[in-house]
Simulated scan of single mutants.
Amino acid sequence: MKKNFLPISINIADQKILIVGGGQDAFKKLKILQRFDAEVEVLALKVCDEIKNSGVKFYEVAYHKKYLKKYLMLYSCLNNDELDKQIVKDCNKAGVLVNIHDKPDLCQFVSPAIHKQGNITIAVASNGENVYESIRIRNLIKDKLQIN
């Protein structure tokens, strides 16, 4: 089934968001979410030092669906096809929005290329199909408007 994502802005301030996975992809996602005042937690068997030093709660345990109850959304940064598919099923059942890193076919939502300064946010989306083109266009807009 072809995905057709609606670009929206959602208030995630003080909302609980879970990142499953503890590597560099998870850390990059964490840095983005922290700019929007989300209450992010990380769950992974092994958590990188950057996440450990970021000030967020992290749990070095294996994923289990019992952890989903309190979250608005989940980002999986595992790069594990079998587990990612299970996470999608579990999130759908639990009513948790799910994003699987670099797998838009499995996602309920995708994140656009974002630039945020104060109350201005530039977001460019490509329906999850061309991330680098979204980033390029976001940067063109940011540069044209001279937003730092």
Score class of each variant (00 low, 15 high):
45 L>T: 15
21 G>S: 01
64 H>N: 09
18 L>M: 13
66 K>F: 03
18 L>W: 04
44 A>C: 04
24 Q>M: 09
21 G>Y: 04
64 H>S: 04
45 L>A: 08
30 L>P: 05
21 G>W: 10
26 A>V: 03
49 D>G: 15
29 K>W: 09
72 L>M: 06
44 A>N: 12
57 K>E: 05
26 A>Q: 08
22 G>D: 03
55 G>M: 15
29 K>D: 09
57 K>P: 04
29 K>V: 11
30 L>I: 10
65 K>Q: 09
38 A>W: 00
52 K>H: 04
25 D>K: 08
61 V>F: 13
52 K>I: 03
26 A>L: 12
30 L>N: 08
62 A>Q: 12
26 A>K: 00
47 V>A: 05
47 V>K: 05
44 A>I: 01
48 C>T: 12
35 R>L: 15
38 A>G: 10
41 E>A: 09
59 Y>A: 08
68 L>E: 07
35 R>Y: 14
21 G>F: 06
62 A>T: 07
48 C>M: 14
19 I>A: 14
65 K>M: 07
34 Q>F: 11
38 A>R: 03
23 G>I: 05
36 F>E: 05
57 K>Q: 10
45 L>Q: 14
62 A>F: 06
56 V>P: 04
65 K>C: 11
67 Y>G: 07
71 Y>F: 02
58 F>Y: 14
40 V>D: 00
27 F>P: 02
19 I>L: 15
67 Y>E: 09
50 E>H: 11
19 I>D: 08
19 I>N: 10
65 K>W: 02
57 K>D: 12
51 I>R: 06
24 Q>E: 03
30 L>M: 07
32 I>S: 14
46 K>G: 09
60 E>V: 12
38 A>K: 00
39 E>A: 03
58 F>W: 12
28 K>C: 08
55 G>C: 08
59 Y>F: 14
40 V>W: 00
39 E>H: 13
34 Q>G: 12
19 I>R: 14
51 I>K: 01
63 Y>R: 01
23 G>Q: 09
43 L>K: 06
67 Y>N: 00
54 S>D: 08
67 Y>S: 01
32 I>W: 13
54 S>K: 14
69 K>H: 00
54 S>I: 01
46 K>Y: 13
26 A>T: 10
38 A>I: 05
24 Q>G: 04
48 C>R: 07
29 K>A: 08
50 E>P: 09
45 L>R: 13
20 V>R: 07
65 K>G: 04
42 V>N: 02
49 D>H: 12
44 A>M: 06
55 G>K: 06
47 V>H: 05
27 F>L: 03
69 K>V: 00
41 E>W: 11
69 K>Q: 02
43 L>Q: 06
52 K>P: 06
72 L>G: 04
30 L>E: 00
64 H>G: 10
58 F>V: 11
48 C>F: 14
54 S>H: 11
22 G>R: 08
68 L>T: 02
42 V>A: 06
60 E>S: 10
